[in-house]
Design a protein around this nucleic acid. Structure first.
Lengths: 233, 233
DNA sequence: CACAGCCAAAAAGTCAGACTTATTTGTCAC
DNA sequence: GTGACAAATAAGTCTGACTTTTTGGCTGTG
């Protein structure tokens, strides 16, 4: 996704970030920059830059005379795309995927409602195009192509909502959908009902029917929750 | 909020961050670390650390032979609490406040529904306590005390949802509520209807009535949207 | 025994300077 | 015009010396 080796400090981050988010260093653990610098065979300057980045993500806290201490999970910047990627790559991938799916279930219906009001003609066109692409690849082991259109569909919805906070969740949704297709439970072919719902959402947005777009999208996200067995009894 | 002067690089960030998020350096602008280091009278090491942090927030991109370029607003990590603070302190505070209020309107009802399922006995107690505190300070120019209980109430709801992504929005909601009380339109006393709704949400959570908790919270957020004139015609 | 204050060690923080590397731009030959 | 090559530029890296803050222990005194 993001260029992996953007400098030495980036390589260090690619090693330290996942380790910390995976809980390899439990909260309260103390690291020392000099020791880390030796371990990764980089200069202290480089290690300091890496620590600064981890600090800005609230993964660690650097204090004089004590060292770099790992912060409790509850304080992490869990919306940082980098942190999300690290965690999705690690051991608590399932847990992370659940959290994000619940987030989706809250955001996307509202975003769809807003999209019905604010979407441009182009965005409406893109939306129908994506929906058609999903239909075209909904049968016969074309999961990869289906995924591309699915991701694009949800990206357009979020962008068309006109809310920058929603728009920035496009990457997160992409990760979740990709994760579901590649690693989690995913049937051979997507459920026909889900495909139909996407087509109908595109319709509703095109017809400026905000309430319907919201309701239909809520049904989609309920389906996503059910797949992960998150649901009210 | 966060300790302001946590080192020289922090002071540089406190100056550069707001400037960039305020659009003082338009997207595509090129900065040079050496020049910045001179301007802020710090060593290059310190300036490099600051740039690394800005880079991790996707506010800037550092490339060899070209310099540090400001990224377009659409790529910023708008969920980073630091970025949110900087933007709330700057010129587009009203716009930012609207975006965040829309976000709240999507998240909080779902969070309340989940809280009704997962809240512990303690959290239920805290909730009623907060609601009572709001009632007690709802009349007679006690906005500050009212605010404290209001913030606490929403924090508990988000935390009790059991979803870490929701829980981490507590700070954001606190900023929005504080912003509304301190700088934006806020009536002398809060609307009695809003206060009642909070009490009822606490009731619903205590009685494990998820649907009711969600519906009532949606009414609260609709009120918040109306205050800012964001609403369907 | 308790407590205040002082001292020394430890680790991060800061700085300055030299050097490396990648990228761009311009130039020259073909 | 197009290709390759050379020079300029700014970030990237490393090193070593120095400063500052914090902590924990060690006094000495009430």
């Amino acid at each position: 996704m993001t260029t992996p080796g953007r400098g030495l400090h980036g390589q260090v981050l690619d090693a330290l970030g996942p380790a910390i988010t995976a809980g390899e260093y439990p909260p309260g653990s103390v690291l020392r920059t000099d020791e880390l610098a030796q371990r990764f065979d980089v200069s202290r300057s480089v290690m300091r830059e890496a620590v600064r980045v981890l600090e800005s993500m609230h993964l660690v806290e650097s204090r004089r005379r004590v060292g770099v201490t790992v912060r409790p999970k509850a304080e992490w910047n869990v919306y940082d795309p980098q942190v999300i990627r690290w965690r999705l790559a690690g051991a608590d991938r399932p847990h992370q995927l659940r959290s994000l799916t619940v987030l989706r279930s809250a955001i996307e219906p509202v975003a769809a409602g807003l999209a019905a009001r604010h979407a441009t003609a182009e965005q409406c066109a893109e939306l129908t195009e994506c929906a058609l692409g999903m239909v075209a690849n909904s049968r016969g082991h074309r999961l990869e192509k289906y995924l591309v259109h699915d991701v694009a569909f949800h990206r357009v919805i979020l962008a068309a909502s006109g809310n920058e906070m929603f728009a920035r969740l496009g990457d997160v949704v992409a990760e979740v959908l990709a994760g579901r297709t590649h690693h989690e439970v995913m049937f051979e072919d997507p459920l026909p009902a889900a495909v139909t719902l996407h087509v109908q959402v595109a319709e509703a947005v095109r017809e400026r029917d905000a309430a319907r777009a919201e309701r239909l999208t809520r049904e989609i996200t309920i389906g996503a929750l059910q797949e992960l067995d998150i649901l009210a009894p």
